[in-house]
Design a protein around this nucleic acid. Structure first.
Lengths: 361, 361
DNA sequence: CTGAAAGCGCTTACAG
DNA sequence: CTGAAAGCGCTTACAG
């Protein structure tokens, strides 16, 4: 650290050329004689020269830094998404800086500024609310960004999201086909597109099967284990308690299991359960949670691809809109007992992609 | 994006001062009249001026960027560690860029260079092997860095790690106290300090209880669910099969559960199980895995603190060495049946900190 | 308290 | 194919 760093001027002096020529050798510029280039690169190697990234970034106006904004990086869902983002970013020579907002608007603002100060070339937002002034402002300014997982209102942005309505519809329909009628949902709040859309899908499925929708069977809160736990404690003390619970994500479902086990009840005999996301937890053989697969890794990967396309082609319109289709992962947590008891005919239509499947990653 | 960005020179012109004075106003330099400062800052606000971070970084030689190197950010253990790192870093005005090496030496090298090119001020390594040439070279050059979770050989670096030997010792001892004698271990390979130390602790505990150590009861591999799964399939087909399995981390334990359930056996009646790390999975009421608590969040937090202290005090020696003490989290996965059956006297000494505790996070 | 000068280490744009 | 000039937007160090 003590000694002065080697610059292109030092190399130039030793090679008896101008520093400009060294710069050319370093940047694969064709306007240089092969021989000169070779001589310079040998010197570069010998002196262990490394270009000053800060200077480069400064003059080229490109940091090759992508800012990733999630609600919580320690949530396995976002961690896996981050991995998908990271891998593609590195492949393209970009680095990723991240931050966790805990869904707090003020942290969203602070962090966006902090990342701007770090000089990011672009943003990936994975946890926006339906309205997010800071992000909407960036969009107005045409700052390169892509939304992943959750969407804002409107369509004026690039995004990669899951078809959450469809996913929720199908998993609810699956419960209905198994014979359940009193189906509760514990899901995210309606200021997030994911919370909202999953509720919509659930409602639509009930409607299409002419099952009456009841506000009493809807519990909304943050997508956390605690929400599932508290919600279940409440639901199970109702006079007309539900036969099945749809946890809006696997985290919530985990909390449902906590509560059910604590009460000494059994899944699916006493209460059926399904989740959403298909985390590692869900696939454990002791848990076997029926859930909806999200392809988080791919979602992150695609997000970066779109972003880089957008940056490098210097586009200004929003033509990258990807909606991934969900896949039902059927395991034992939603049970069959009721189906057998009631011999409900609706079941014949239910497609079982894999029963008790065990996808290790 | 189209319009030219506002610079301090623009502000200077409008305020009829030199750009130097604007710089002072921006940097809380006391050598400026309050009145001038106020006038300038108003202009700054009005023109929506934001300093060019790239230029600042370039001249000040500080990027306020920390590079985090883990084996896999999508592993919940590292994700939580990352959160601890992120929070402290942001508090101190730093950003964090991360990469996942999958424990591959060549990726370690590639990514370290990529991050150097991004201009990081310092590194946090969470997944080094016992020998890691790239990292050892950085240490030789006195580049600011801290090791977290895993250590290199020797002592010539700053670190924050868990006392893994002690953790493994205590959890093995706990199994012994419950009456188990044939205890197998499935853990990480010995080229990682964590894998090595947990094996050491296990061996020492057996030795202190005069239980014969058998190579046949040791399975090593990556710290993954697959290792636990395959290992268990193997162990359970042995003629003298173990009564208990110590999974080197909760991921491995998860794989053990997969295998045990698949074989239609029960935990802890047929085979007792303990893990290591205390992940969310372990605390689920359906799993109730006895494990060792790691304080990952705190580990990350401390790592950053050490690092910033090191950077800002421009130290060159290694005086920051923190060894966190483990805490046994006792749940039902290791059972009591054997204890009751055998009425083993050894049990009286076992301290039970919490039985079936349920720490939601 | 204020400013003119120099420079950080590169790249861009132009001239030969 | 090579180079001299200019400049990116700031800060550091010095002079007033």
């Amino acid at each position: 650290m003590g000694q002065k760093r080697v610059t292109i001027r030092d190399i130039a002096k030793m090679a008896k050329v101008s520093h400009m020529t060294v710069s050319r050798a370093l940047n694969n510029d064709p306007r240089i004689r092969e021989e000169t280039k070779k001589r310079i690169l040998e010197l570069v190697d010998k002196l262990n020269y490394r270009p000053d990234a800060r200077a480069r970034t400064f003059v080229s106006k490109k940091s090759n830094l992508i800012g990733l904004v999630v609600s919580d990086i320690s949530n396995p869902f976002y961690a896996e998404l981050a991995r998908g983002i990271e891998d593609k970013a590195h492949e393209e020579g970009y680095n990723v800086i991240f931050c966790s907002t805990d869904n707090k608007p003020e942290r969203m603002e602070t962090y966006v500024h902090l990342m701007m100060d770090a000089g990011v070339d672009a943003f990936i937002f994975a946890s926006t609310r339906i309205r997010e002034p800071v992000v909407e402002k960036l969009i107005d300014e045409r700052f390169p960004l892509v939304l992943v997982n959750r969407r804002l209102r409107g369509e004026a942005f690039n995004y990669v999201v899951l078809n959450n309505i469809r996913g929720a519809y199908e998993i609810t329909e699956h419960l209905i086909n198994l014979g359940y009628r009193r189906i509760a949902i514990i899901t995210g709040t309606s200021n997030m597109s994911t919370g909202l859309d999953r509720l919509k899908g659930y409602q639509q499925a009930l409607k299409d099967s002419r099952i009456e929708f009841s506000e009493n069977y809807v519990i909304q809160g943050p997508f956390t284990r605690g929400t599932g736990y508290e919600g279940t404690k409440h639901l199970l003390t109702m006079k007309n308690r539900p036969e099945a619970i749809f946890g809006g994500n696997d985290y919530i479902a985990m909390g449902v299991i906590d509560a059910v086990e604590e009460l000494g009840l059994h899944i699916p005999e006493d209460i059926a359960l399904v989740g959403f996301d298909d985390t590692e937890f869900a696939s454990n053989q002791r848990i076997r949670l029926t859930t909806v697969s999200q392809r988080k890794y791919e979602m992150g990967n695609l997000g970066v691809q779109i972003l880089i396309d957008y940056i490098e082609r210097k586009e200004t319109d929003y033509t990258h809109k990807i909606i991934l289709e969900p896949r039902l992962i059927i395991r034992e947590s939603c049970g069959q007992k009721l189906r057998e008891k009631r011999k409900n005919k609706l079941t014949r239509g239910s497609k079982v992609e894999s029963f008790s499947s065990f996808d290790r990653t």
